[in-house]
Protein backbone atom coordinates (compact mmCIF):
# COMPACT_ATOMS: atom_id res chain seq x y z
CA UNK A 1 0.00 0.00 0.00
CA UNK A 2 1.29 3.39 -0.92
CA UNK A 3 1.74 6.02 1.72
CA UNK A 4 -0.72 8.17 -0.19
CA UNK A 5 -3.47 5.54 0.05
CA UNK A 6 -2.74 5.00 3.72
CA UNK A 7 -3.13 8.73 4.35
CA UNK A 8 -6.24 8.89 2.18
CA UNK A 9 -8.02 6.01 3.92
CA UNK A 10 -7.29 7.43 7.36
CA UNK A 11 -8.65 10.85 6.33
CA UNK A 12 -11.69 9.25 4.68
CA UNK A 13 -12.66 7.38 7.81
CA UNK A 14 -12.70 10.67 9.70
CA UNK A 15 -14.34 12.54 6.80
CA UNK A 16 -11.57 15.13 6.81
CA UNK A 17 -12.48 16.52 3.40
CA UNK A 18 -10.21 19.56 3.48
CA UNK A 19 -7.21 17.41 4.41
CA UNK A 20 -7.95 15.03 1.54
CA UNK A 21 -7.86 17.90 -0.95
CA UNK A 22 -4.74 19.27 0.73
CA UNK A 23 -3.05 15.90 0.12
CA UNK A 24 -3.38 16.35 -3.66
CA UNK A 25 -1.18 19.32 -4.62
CA UNK A 26 -2.86 20.17 -7.94
CA UNK A 27 -6.37 19.93 -6.42
CA UNK A 28 -5.24 22.41 -3.79
CA UNK A 29 -3.81 24.70 -6.47
CA UNK A 30 -7.11 24.67 -8.39
CA UNK A 31 -8.95 25.48 -5.15
CA UNK A 32 -11.14 22.35 -5.04
CA UNK A 33 -13.43 21.76 -2.07
CA UNK A 34 -15.37 18.64 -1.28
CA UNK A 35 -18.09 17.44 1.08
CA UNK A 36 -21.23 15.35 1.15
CA UNK A 37 -24.67 16.20 -0.23
CA UNK A 38 -27.88 15.50 1.71
CA UNK A 39 -27.89 11.87 0.57
CA UNK A 40 -24.32 11.27 1.67
CA UNK A 41 -22.81 11.31 -1.83
CA UNK A 42 -19.55 13.14 -2.43
CA UNK A 43 -20.00 16.61 -3.90
CA UNK A 44 -17.05 18.53 -5.30
CA UNK A 45 -17.00 22.28 -5.75
CA UNK A 46 -14.63 24.78 -7.27
CA UNK A 47 -15.24 28.36 -6.16
CA UNK A 48 -14.46 30.85 -8.91
CA UNK A 49 -10.87 32.07 -8.99
CA UNK A 50 -9.28 34.42 -11.50
CA UNK A 51 -6.30 32.07 -11.95
CA UNK A 52 -8.62 29.37 -13.36
CA UNK A 53 -9.81 31.48 -16.29
CA UNK A 54 -9.08 30.57 -19.90
CA UNK A 55 -10.60 33.07 -22.28
CA UNK A 56 -10.39 36.38 -20.39
CA UNK A 57 -12.71 38.41 -22.61
CA UNK A 58 -15.81 36.30 -21.86
CA UNK A 59 -14.57 35.39 -19.14
CA UNK A 60 -14.76 31.59 -19.06
CA UNK A 61 -13.11 28.88 -16.99
CA UNK A 62 -10.29 27.17 -18.91
CA UNK A 63 -11.47 23.96 -20.57
CA UNK A 64 -8.38 22.14 -19.37
CA UNK A 65 -9.07 23.26 -15.83
CA UNK A 66 -12.65 21.93 -16.02
CA UNK A 67 -11.16 18.66 -17.26
CA UNK A 68 -8.68 18.53 -14.39
CA UNK A 69 -11.40 19.28 -11.85
CA UNK A 70 -13.60 16.48 -13.21
CA UNK A 71 -10.78 13.99 -13.49
CA UNK A 72 -9.76 14.73 -9.93
CA UNK A 73 -13.38 14.32 -8.78
CA UNK A 74 -13.61 10.92 -10.51
CA UNK A 75 -10.40 9.65 -8.93
CA UNK A 76 -11.31 10.79 -5.40
CA UNK A 77 -14.88 9.52 -5.76
CA UNK A 78 -13.57 6.10 -6.77
CA UNK A 79 -11.01 5.98 -3.97
CA UNK A 80 -13.68 7.11 -1.50
CA UNK A 81 -16.03 4.30 -2.48
CA UNK A 82 -13.52 1.46 -2.63
CA UNK A 83 -11.90 -0.67 -0.01
CA UNK A 84 -8.79 -1.38 -2.04
CA UNK A 85 -5.47 -0.16 -0.80
CA UNK A 86 -4.16 0.44 -4.29
CA UNK A 87 -4.57 3.84 -5.95
CA UNK A 88 -6.56 3.57 -9.20
CA UNK A 89 -4.69 4.61 -12.34
CA UNK A 90 -6.43 6.61 -15.01
CA UNK A 91 -6.48 4.94 -18.43
CA UNK A 92 -8.50 7.37 -20.48
CA UNK A 93 -10.71 10.36 -19.97
CA UNK A 94 -13.35 11.72 -22.31
CA UNK A 95 -14.98 15.07 -21.80
CA UNK A 96 -17.87 16.83 -23.55
CA UNK A 97 -18.15 20.56 -23.07
CA UNK A 98 -21.80 21.65 -23.11
CA UNK A 99 -21.69 25.24 -21.86
CA UNK A 100 -18.93 27.67 -21.04
CA UNK A 101 -17.87 27.79 -17.40
CA UNK A 102 -18.96 31.16 -16.00
CA UNK A 103 -17.32 33.20 -13.24
CA UNK A 104 -19.10 31.34 -10.46
CA UNK A 105 -18.75 28.09 -8.48
CA UNK A 106 -18.50 24.88 -10.51
CA UNK A 107 -19.88 21.67 -8.98
CA UNK A 108 -19.22 18.05 -9.85
CA UNK A 109 -20.66 14.72 -8.84
CA UNK A 110 -19.70 11.23 -9.99
CA UNK A 111 -21.24 7.83 -10.43
CA UNK A 112 -19.38 4.53 -10.62
CA UNK A 113 -21.10 2.87 -13.55
CA UNK A 114 -19.12 -0.32 -13.35
CA UNK A 115 -16.46 -1.64 -11.07
CA UNK A 116 -14.85 -4.82 -12.30
CA UNK A 117 -11.79 -6.69 -11.06
CA UNK A 118 -9.42 -4.72 -13.23
CA UNK A 119 -11.24 -1.71 -14.58
CA UNK A 120 -13.74 0.83 -13.27
CA UNK A 121 -15.92 3.16 -15.33
CA UNK A 122 -16.89 6.48 -13.78
CA UNK A 123 -19.35 9.10 -15.05
CA UNK A 124 -18.84 12.72 -14.02
CA UNK A 125 -21.19 15.66 -14.36
CA UNK A 126 -20.39 19.34 -13.80
CA UNK A 127 -22.81 22.23 -13.44
CA UNK A 128 -23.04 25.75 -12.02
CA UNK A 129 -26.29 27.42 -10.89
CA UNK A 130 -28.64 24.85 -12.35
CA UNK A 131 -27.96 21.14 -12.20
CA UNK A 132 -30.26 20.61 -15.19
CA UNK A 133 -27.89 22.70 -17.31
CA UNK A 134 -24.58 20.85 -17.16
CA UNK A 135 -21.37 22.68 -18.09
CA UNK A 136 -19.64 19.41 -18.95
CA UNK A 137 -20.10 15.67 -18.75
CA UNK A 138 -17.23 13.23 -18.72
CA UNK A 139 -16.37 9.60 -18.28
CA UNK A 140 -13.17 7.93 -17.23
CA UNK A 141 -11.72 4.44 -17.12
CA UNK A 142 -9.42 3.52 -14.26
CA UNK A 143 -7.15 0.54 -13.88
CA UNK A 144 -7.70 -0.92 -10.43
CA UNK A 145 -4.89 -3.40 -10.08
CA UNK A 146 -1.38 -3.81 -11.32
CA UNK A 147 -0.28 -7.30 -12.36
CA UNK A 148 2.10 -8.70 -9.77
Amino acid sequence: MSQFMETFLALRDEKRFADIIAAVPYARLMGVACGEDESGELLFSLPFAERNVGNTTLPALHGGLIGGFLENAALLHLMWNRESLEAPKIVDFSLDYLRSGKATTLYAQCEITKQGKRVAHVLIEAWQEDRRKPVAVARAHFLLSTPS
Binding site: Y26, A27, H62, G63, L65, G67, G68, E71, I90, L95
Partner: peptide
Protein backbone atom coordinates in the same frame (compact mmCIF):
# COMPACT_ATOMS: atom_id res chain seq x y z
CA UNK B 1 -1.83 15.48 -12.14
CA UNK B 2 -3.73 14.34 -15.24
CA UNK B 3 -5.45 17.72 -15.27
CA UNK B 4 -2.16 19.33 -16.29
CA UNK B 5 -2.09 17.04 -19.34
CA UNK B 6 -5.70 17.96 -20.14
CA UNK B 7 -4.88 21.66 -20.01
CA UNK B 8 -1.76 21.46 -22.17
CA UNK B 9 -3.55 19.26 -24.74
CA UNK B 10 -6.53 21.63 -24.87
CA UNK B 11 -4.34 24.72 -25.24
Amino acid sequence: HGGVITSIVDT
